[in-house]
Amino acid sequence: MTTHPTHLRLHQFAGFQPGPKLLVSAAVHGNEVSGIAAIRRVIEQLDSGALTLLKGSVTFIPVVNELANRLGRREGDRNLNRNMRPPVIPQDFEDRINTQLCPQLAACDVLLDLHSFQGQGKPFAMLGPRNNDGALEPFMHAEAEGRLALSVGTERIVEGWLSTYALGLARRAERTGDGSRRASLQQDPHYGVGTTEYKRSQRGYGITLECGQHADPEAPEFAYQAILRVMALLGLIAPEAATPRPAGKPELLQLYEVIDREHEGDSFEHAWASFDEVTKGQRIGTRASGEPVLAPDDGRIVFPAANATPGSEWFYLARASDRQIG
């Protein structure tokens, strides 16, 4: 039996000179561990003096979801990176995390949240919305967030998460729920809000960095280099302390569709990797009923999750974005 953790462990370094407040987090999903080793490596270097904090502050949370991490799975009681907000009355373990995590997110200026993904593929960054005053995700730091996304050194940057997720909510709400807390949460319009969306709602900005496949041996090194590049971008450490990002502009894609896995018998046509190309009408998978799941347009498949829990995201679709950053 796994005992539920009773606290959230933070490591903070505060410089003597004023500057930006950075928060770096990992293991929001307990089986996404590449960022843990990367964060601990940076902490050791700051402790030893091998790395010098010039100004501002940096707060590290190596393991956000300790329960899920101990269990070696994505979630403890539920998906922490959905329905993120301070709970009025905590109902589950992830709510208890949020009592401490949300104030930390609100207090920082910039967030770097380190993740990994199930399928094969290369690292990519998730960018927030363009500047807007709409109801879904009003925002005013698109230019700074674009520079942040460019700094980490990925070959691809993806935008459009929350607006795409909102489209899926309408379909999910039409399906009959099972009456559980999970089912009710997944029909809540707030359910698509995770770390970066919550950070933007509290002012400031941040990105989700997908560092590679869960078990990719290169992912911890990529996460480590990304942390240093972000710290250098913000002036927290000297520029020469970080390796320059690769030359050239990354590909910029926009999510436009999300498809849920509805039944355990839903299966993919083959083992998809994030950013595999699909053409209009191409069979992506098959429902348990035998109904084909076809690509509605040319584009890329993103976050394919062959073993997704029924009622949650199976895969996303993306196409080229017309956005200009950097």
Rank of each mutant, 00 (worst) to 15 (best):
F16T: 13
V28C: 06
I36P: 04
N31H: 14
P18L: 07
V33D: 00
A27W: 04
G15C: 08
V24Q: 02
K21E: 15
V33I: 13
A27Y: 00
E32Y: 02
T6S: 09
A26D: 04
S34N: 06
V24D: 02
I39V: 13
P18G: 08
V33C: 08
P20S: 08
L8G: 07
H29M: 06
F13E: 11
A27H: 05
V42Q: 07
R41L: 01
F16R: 14
Q12H: 11
A26S: 15
P18A: 08
S25F: 00
F13P: 07
G19K: 13
V33P: 00
K21S: 15
H7T: 14
G19L: 10
P20K: 03
A26G: 15
Q12Y: 02
K21A: 15
Q12K: 14
R40W: 05
Q12C: 12
R40T: 06
P20N: 05
T6K: 12
G35F: 00
H29V: 06
V28G: 10
Q17G: 07
R41T: 15
G30S: 02
L8Y: 10
G15N: 04
R9S: 10
L8N: 07
L23W: 03
A38L: 11
L8P: 10
N31C: 14
A37L: 13
H29P: 03
V42G: 02
G30Y: 02
V42R: 06
Q12P: 07
H11S: 00
S34L: 09
P20L: 06
S25E: 01
E32T: 07
K21V: 12
V24A: 00
T6A: 08
A26T: 08
I39E: 09
A38Y: 03
A26W: 06
A37S: 15
G19H: 09
S34P: 05
T6L: 09
T6E: 09
I39G: 08
L8H: 11
A37E: 03
F16M: 11
E32G: 01
I36H: 04
V24H: 01
E32D: 05
G15V: 03
V28T: 15
A26R: 03
A37K: 13
A37H: 11
A37Q: 11
F16A: 12
G35A: 03
A38P: 09
A38G: 10
V28L: 10
N31F: 11
V33N: 07
L22A: 06
H11I: 02
R9V: 14
H11C: 00
G30V: 01
H7E: 10
G19D: 12
A27N: 04
G19N: 10
Q12R: 15
K21W: 12
G35E: 04
V28K: 03
L22D: 05
Q12N: 08
P20I: 08
G30R: 00
S25T: 15
H29A: 04
H29E: 05
G30D: 00
N31G: 12
T6G: 11
T6F: 04
V28D: 03
I36C: 05
V42C: 10
L8C: 09
L10Y: 09
V24R: 01
V33K: 01
L10N: 10
A38D: 05
A38F: 09
L10V: 09
L23I: 14
P18E: 12
S25N: 06
Q17K: 14
